[in-house]
Amino acid sequence: MAAAVRAGRRLSRAAAAGGELERAGVPRALCAELRAGPVVAFALLRRLHAALRDAGNPVYLHELLEGSEFDFPEVKKPPRNPELVARLEKIKAKLANEEYRRMTRNIRCQDVCRDGTLADLGRQVRSVKALIITIFNFIVTVAAAFACTYLGSQYIFTETAARVLSAVIVASVVGLAEMYVMVRTIEGELGEL
């Protein structure tokens, strides 16, 4: 925060010996303090303002300060505590390691090597085995529905064409239902990945 003003040309001329301030009745000691240096403290400006007001002078302080600039002191940063710096570095390293682990948690060496291991081979064999069993189950279910309908429809239809047509319709319905269940199951398994 500023506590002083760097005197402008107007204030320097007014404070000079025999200048406008001395003619206005401002005490010489105050004028000498104003001439002492390029930086004028706010306390000195308050005293000057009070002296101008007491003298009933038409010279105003804001006119004298025209062209002056605030003097901001240099801010000196305190030295950082070495313990705090070491602790912050440790925390930064820990956070970076956690973020790295989070980013790489689903990466395995086998995926990078692409050679595979016996565990990968076993997983693939189980997957193929499950697929073969599902296809075999589908074929057996559709064939059984066809056979049962063909044999059971002999009590309703006497002609072979009608019996075959009814068996195909029932087998198609059972096949579509089985396909629906398979798709839902595979969709659920893919959702878990």
Rank of each mutant, 00 (worst) to 15 (best):
L165P: 00
L65K: 06
N97E: 15
E98G: 04
C148A: 10
A162D: 10
L52E: 02
V39Q: 05
R13T: 02
R123Y: 08
C109V: 13
P79D: 14
G56A: 02
D120E: 10
E99S: 08
H49A: 11
E83T: 13
A2N: 06
Y180A: 05
G67D: 11
E192S: 06
A130G: 13
R105Q: 12
Y155F: 14
N137Y: 02
S166R: 00
R114L: 06
R6A: 13
V181I: 11
P79Q: 12
P38H: 07
D115Q: 12
V85E: 09
R53D: 13
V75D: 05
Y100S: 08
E22D: 07
E189M: 14
F136N: 09
I135N: 06
K129W: 10
C148D: 07
A2T: 14
K77Q: 05
V164L: 07
P27M: 01
M179Q: 02
V142G: 00
S68D: 02
E187Y: 07
L131A: 15
A32L: 12
L165K: 04
K77V: 05
V85T: 11
F136G: 13
S172R: 01
L44R: 07
E83F: 15
L64Q: 01
L84Q: 09
A41W: 04
L34T: 01
R123P: 00
T185Q: 14
G56P: 05
A41G: 13
A147S: 12
G18K: 05
R6S: 10
L48I: 03
A17S: 09
H62C: 06
R108K: 10
D115E: 14
M182N: 04
C31Y: 03
L61N: 01
A96I: 04
A32S: 13
E89F: 03
A93S: 14
I156S: 06
G152H: 02
D120R: 04
F42E: 08
L165F: 07
V164K: 08
A177H: 06
G122C: 05
P82I: 09
C109G: 08
Q110E: 14
A86P: 00
V173S: 08
I186H: 11
N57C: 15
G18F: 07
I135E: 09
S153T: 15
C113I: 06
V26R: 01
A14L: 01
S166I: 07
A130N: 15
A145W: 09
L45W: 04
A32W: 05
R53S: 12
F72W: 14
Q110I: 08
R23L: 14
L131T: 13
F72I: 09
G116C: 02
A7L: 01
D120F: 01
V183D: 09
L61G: 00
A29H: 02
C31G: 08
S12K: 14
C31P: 03
G67L: 03
P78Q: 15
I91L: 15
A93R: 14
A32I: 06
R35L: 04
D115P: 00
K90H: 13
A171W: 03
A4M: 05
G116T: 01
L151S: 02
I169H: 08
M103W: 04
C148S: 07
H62I: 04
G18V: 05
G25V: 08
A177S: 09
E66S: 10
E192Y: 03
R13G: 03
P38W: 05
L121T: 10
V140M: 08
V173D: 00
R102S: 10
V181H: 11
